[in-house]
């Protein structure tokens, strides 16, 4: 066995320099090798979510996005198209009101504003309780279909109480809340905080989707119909009164 290197300032600094040099070179090499697979792996979850929360599409929504400001944050909206026609829009939403940490949900909307489906992207909720809302996981747990949580959102049309103060518009959700708070969603037993958080994230997505609607003037079109309906109703009442006289 060769004798050990002596500890002088020169040998010590040389060794450390050499070792860290080789280490960083090796890591740089591994990093370039794994860079693409990592971005692919990151996108995979999103692609999976998009194919669940949007109707069949033939474009790549990951590259067809719109950024919409919601409060201090910006949400990314993925547009799903089939034959160049918009079939749905998915909003990547989040909430900080979860049990522990940020909690992000992908929410898909049909063009008429109803929710097509929802899926959790990332959460740090308690295993066994809060994570029951992860649809793919709850399916595998007992073999029986326990995806009832996310199914509650399918086909829901978000309703909002809109109010205006200080020149800003506020949208207060009405129906997408847990039943304890007066909404239409049944909370998961023993996981009310997580259930509330999920609703909160979905509502954020809804409010954002609402903004896209405003940008397109779609909701304006609807208000138009409502106006005509009211006018027709007034006219009808007017005629009715005249006839009764």
């Amino acid at each position: 066995m060769a004798s050990k290197m002596k500890s002088t300032l020169l040998t010590m600094s040389l060794t450390l320099l050499l070792i860290t040099g080789i280490a960083s070179a090796l890591l740089a090499y591994v990093y370039t090798l794994t860079k693409d697979p990592i971005t692919q792996a990151e996108n995979q979850k999103k692609e999976q979510a998009l194919s669940l929360v949007l109707p069949k599409f033939d474009n790549s929504p990951l590259e067809d996005t719109v950024k919409i400001a919601s409060g201090v944050d910006t949400l990314i909206c993925y547009i799903g198209k089939n034959n160049n026609e918009i079939v749905g829009i998915a909003v990547e939403s989040f909430t900080d009101e979860g049990f522990s940490g940020r909690f992000s949900v992908m929410v898909g909307f049909l063009p008429d504003g109803t929710i097509y489906n929802t899926m959790i992207l990332e959460h740090k909720e308690t295993p066994g309780l809060g994570d029951k809302m992860e649809n793919e996981k709850s399916m595998s747990i007992s073999g029986s279909d326990t995806t009832w949580w996310s199914k509650q959102f399918i086909g829901k049309k978000p309703e909002f109480n809109t109010s205006e103060s200080d020149g800003k518009k506020y949208a207060e959700p009405i129906n997408i809340k847990v039943s304890k708070d007066g909404g239409e969603i049944d909370a998961i037993t023993a996981a009310t905080i997580s259930s509330r958080a999920y609703c909160n994230a979905v509502n954020r997505a809804c409010a954002t989707y609402f903004k896209i609607g405003e940008l397109k003037g779609k909701s304006g079109g609807k208000a138009h119909y409502v106006l005509i309906l009211f006018l027709a109703l007034g006219l009808f009442i007017f005629i009715f009164k005249k006839l009764n006289k």
Binding site: T20, A23, S24, L27, A28, Y31
Partner: peptide
Amino acid sequence: DIEYLQTITFIL
């Protein structure tokens, strides 16, 4: 853009 050296830098 060398975040991958995080572990090694921090521990040192």
